[in-house]
Design a protein around this nucleic acid. Structure first.
Lengths: 244, 244
DNA sequence: GCCCCAATTTGGTCGGTCCAAAGCATTCGG
DNA sequence: CCGAATGCTTTGGACCGACCAAATTGGGGC
């Protein structure tokens, strides 16, 4: 462990390494600086190999790397499309790995626990500092949720939306991203859960409890309601993960 | 635009796409199943092209993809090393993008805010449910922190450690990973901050306040102490980020 | 037995080639 | 005159064979 510093020094001293890295760097820079516009296709590979005077192999490798980082969206047979990075891009790149960890072992449970942790904090904050607008949005999402009790798919969507509103309250762009990450990662399993009007009614009641607690500026009650709500949900969804 | 539906149908029906994807999948499977052992080097490319009866180009592409996902650690001129994925792997893959967003704009502030949010939850939980062992660890970390007040580097390390203990309390592997992510991402800027025994003494006092609040099972006081502590820290570190 | 050096392995890069699908323009039919 | 079918060109995906330099390995010399 202690000699890590030395090895790090050596690795840092690597002089050139890959040729593609230089190209990656330059393209990345151009994307960030706006020389290469967002949502436009990348120049053709043969064009790039001329600009950087490199072989197509290297250009290809560079493109692949950028795509792996999420700066390019490379569909199989189409031109890669420029994607300026945001928090969503970051979350996307982890997606494939998270997916792996969800499949077996208790990775899914860890992830869900983290979600409970986050939302507990969110509802507490909401209870103490939600603005009039936040509350109006919550109310609206709640109404939509109630209206969808009889429709499984719609209820799922409005459920997500209600929780999603909570993630917007802090005004930090990381949270909405986190929310969409949680939902997309857990969605396939969630969909596998059987739904019933009765179950939906219970869920709605939980949402209502959370909402009222926020209205009454009672963080503890809000947190409590949220925890019981999510625990119930988990008892329905958890079993759909492979026990391995 | 309207014909997008047709093209999407076609793309969806694409049976093979990339040839490397098949190889990626098989290697990934072997890594997960343990056929390819953790921390051992991957077979040579020429070996792999024989096993999968594919060209070296494709094999190389597959390896690059795996490396991008974090399942392989590919240093420039060495054999790629198998890495079984964990939450740390996931965090690593986002690293490069997060790094980008830290450089300019207020991405750094968003990230720091999220850290404050997380640690607020952590100290609350610690205050309500820390075990005897947790508290012992905290006490130990606190003592080490105090002993290092005169040494800038040592104080930085023990500071990290103290906060790190908080991340271990929930017993969820995601949190320690998150902690190391936060520290590695923010470290370069943190190091740029000038330290003084006086400043360290104040930080230590904050840590002590957090610790006592946890001891007294007072979540609100613990959260309060944590928030003021981190706000002070940010006022020192924040300015080191490029204002764009 | 240990260290140093040569032979071999192996990853990185290159140029060229072939193929199939995407893009584009032209033409043909209504 | 406009829209759809058609043929040509561009472009990404894959393969091959080769070369180079660094990493690894296996001896051989001290």
């Amino acid at each position: 462990m202690t000699k890590a510093s030395r090895s790090k020094a050596i690795e840092n001293a690597a002089p050139d390494g890959r040729a593609s890295d230089a190209i990656v760097e330059r393209i990345q820079e151009q994307i960030l600086s706006g020389t290469l516009l967002h949502n436009t296709p990348l120049p053709s590979e043969r064009d790039l190999m001329e600009r950087f005077s490199a072989s197509r192999t290297v250009v290809r490798e560079a493109v692949a790397t950028l795509a792996g980082r999420g700066l390019l969206e490379a569909k199989p047979r189409y031109r890669p499309i420029i994607r300026k990075p945001g928090f969503d891009t970051a979350l996307n790149t982890v997606g494939s790995i998270v997916q792996l960890m969800l499949q077996h072992q208790q990775g899914a449970e860890s992830l869900f626990e983290s979600r409970v942790f986050v939302e507990r904090g969110l509802v507490r904050d909401a209870a103490t500092s939600a603005t009039r607008e936040n509350i109006a949005e919550l109310k609206e999402a709640l109404a939509a949720n109630e209206a969808a009790i009889m429709d499984f798919d719609a209820f799922y969507d409005t459920d997500m939306d209600f929780h999603g509103v909570l993630y917007t309250i802090p005004g930090n762009p990381i949270f909405p991203t986190l929310h969409s990450a949680y939902t997309t990662w857990l969605a396939p399993h969630w969909r596998r859960m059987e739904g019933s009007p009765e179950f939906n009614r219970k869920s709605y009641a939980s949402h209502l409890a959370i909402y009222t607690a926020i209205l009454e500026r009672d963080p503890d009650a809000a947190e409590e309601a949220l925890v019981t709500h999510l625990n119930v949900s988990w008892s329905s969804v958890g079993p759909t993960f492979a026990p391995k």
